[in-house]
Amino acid sequence: QDLTLTLGHAVFESHPLHDAAVRFAREVDERSDGSIKIDIFPARQMGDVKELMEGVQLGTVDMTVNSSSALATLTPAVDAFQLPYVMRGYAEFAKMAVSPEAEAIMDALGDHGMIGLGLYEGGQRHFLSTGDTVTSMEGFKGLKTRVAPTKLFLAVWNAVGVNPTPMAYGEIYSGLETGAIDAVEINLTSIESEGLYEAAHNVTLTGHYFWPGIMLINKDLFEGLTEEQQTILRESARASVEPQVMAVADYDEELKDTLAAKGVTITEASDDFKAQLEEAWAPVVKSYADSDPLIAAFVEKAQSLQD
C-alpha cells in the first residue's frame, strides 16, 4: 500500500456521515486496487467538529467529513447549503451536491488550506417539541428552541417567532427533559441515537433544511499526491455522494416507524404551513443570495430544479 490517509470525524458509527466515510473509503480501495487506504477514526477520537476542521487546515488530520455549518465561519458561501426550503427533497440534494455551483463553493475553501472533495448529507432537519405538536406559525411563538448559534440559524428561527436558545449538543437531552428548552430543530437520526424521544414526543416534519457534511482533505497534502491519486480521491468522493444521500432518505423512512413505535407522534407539516414557512423565510434566503454571488448561483440552480 502506497498511501494511508487518516480520516477523523465527530459522529457515532450509526450516523449517516460515518456511512459517507465508509462508502468513500470503499470506493477509494476499489479504484486504487488497495494502494490507497483510508483509516477512519470515528466518534470524536481525533477531536470535535472545530478541531477536525482545524486539524485538516494545520495538517495534523489528513481528512475529515464535517458539518458544513462549521465551515461557514471560514467561507460564508457555505451557508448556501443550509438555506431553508432551497432544496426540498433528498433526490434534489443529491443532484445539487455534485452540481458545478456546489463545487464552486467548496473550491472557495482552498483559501483556507482545505480541499472539499464531496458534499454528503447528515439528515434533513425537523422540529421536535415537548409541548403540543407545532402545526402552524402560532405554535412556534416563544418556544425556547435549541439552535446552533450561527448567524444563519438565528435569522432563520427568529423569522418564525421562536426563542432561539444556544445550547451544547450534549446538553439537549437534559435540556428537554428538565424544560430548560421546549424544542429542538434536529434530524430523525439524532432523535433516535441520542434517545431524545424519551424527553420529547412530538415531531413536525418540517424538513426545513439539510445538514450537509463536507469531505475535506488538507490542501498541501492533496497537491503533493500524484495526478492519478488525486483523480481517484475526487472520483471516489463524487461516486459515493448519491448512494450515501439516498441511503439517508431510506433510513429516515425506517426511522419514522421506529420512532412511532417508541411513542413519538410524527406529523407531516401541511402544505399551507409549509407555504407560510417559505414566505417567512424568503427574505432570509434573499438577503443571503444578495450577499454572495456563489450563494445566488446555487439558489438559482436549486430553484430551477424545483420548477
Binding site: L58, D111, H112, K151
Partner: peptide, 14 residues
C-alpha cells in the same frame, strides 16, 4: 502563533 495565524481566516460563530 502558527496555529492562530493559519486559522486567522475564521470568525467566531456568534
Amino acid at each position: 502563533w502558527k496555529f492562530a495565524w493559519k486559522t486567522r481566516g475564521g470568525t467566531a460563530t456568534a
